[in-house]
C-alpha cells in the first residue's frame, strides 16, 4: 500500500483540478466526470485525518473560481458530500465491492443534486437527465481505478 501523506493528497487533487481545466467542449463537457470530487472521496475514505470537510470546502472554492459561478456553490456541495462520506467512512469496511461502488455513486449524485438546487435558485434550466451523466462516468472511472488495483479504503481487504 502506498503511503498517504498530506503532500500526495494535495498533489493528486491538483492534478485532478488540472484535468477539470482541460479544454472540454461539446459531449466531452457533458460526460466529464468530476475528477476533483472523486479524488476527494477517495482520500476521505482512505485517509480522513489528511483530507476532511475543510479540505473539501477549500477545493470547492477553487472549483467555483474555475467554473465562474457564484462563490460558495461548489464549496457547499462538496462540504455536504464530504460530511456524508466521513460519516459512513468506518462502515465502509463492511461493504463489498458492489456496495462500495453504489456508495460512491450516491455521493456523486448527492453533490450534483445540491449543485442542481443551488443553480436552479439562480434561474438556470437543465436539459433533462443527461445532467446526471457525469456521475455515471465518474463511477465508471472509479471502477476502472479499482480494477487497476487501487485500494480505495484502509479497512477493506476483501
Amino acid at each position: 500500500m502506498a503511503k498517504s501523506s498530506l503532500y500526495s493528497v494535495y498533489l493528486t487533487i491538483m492534478v485532478a483540478f488540472l484535468c477539470i481545466l482541460l479544454p472540454w467542449s461539446g459531449y466531452g463537457l457533458k460526460l466529464r466526470p468530476d475528477f476533483v470530487l472523486l479524488l476527494l472521496i477517495f482520500w476521505m475514505l482512505r485517509a480522513p485525518h489528511l483530507c476532511n470537510i475543510g479540505t473539501a470546502w477549500f477545493v470547492g472554492l477553487w472549483m467555483d473560481l474555475a467554473t465562474g459561478g457564484v462563490f460558495g456553490q461548489y464549496a457547499l456541495a462538496y462540504t455536504i458530500t464530504a460530511f456524508i462520506a466521513i460519516m459512513y467512512q468506518r462502515r465502509l469496511a463492511l461493504f463489498n465491492a458492489t456496495q462500495q461502488l453504489l456508495y460512491v455513486l450516491m455521493l456523486l449524485v448527492i453533490a450534483q443534486l445540491i449543485l442542481l438546487i443551488l443553480k436552479t435558485f439562480s434561474g438556470v434550466e437543465v436539459d433533462g437527465w443527461s445532467f446526471f451523466l457525469p456521475s455515471i462516468t465518474g463511477v465508471m472511472l472509479w471502477q476502472l481505478a479499482v480494477a487497476l488495483g487501487l485500494k480505495t479504503s484502509v479497512h477493506s481487504r476483501t
Binding site: 473539501a56 472554492l61 464549496a75 462540504t79 460530511f83
Partner: peptide
C-alpha cells in the same frame, strides 16, 4: 464532523450571499 459541517456550510452560504 457535524460541527465542521455546520461551520463550512454557513461559511459557503455567507459567501454565496455576499457574492
Amino acid at each position: 464532523p457535524l460541527t465542521r459541517l455546520a461551520f463550512f456550510t454557513s461559511l459557503s452560504l455567507a459567501l454565496m450571499i455576499t457574492d
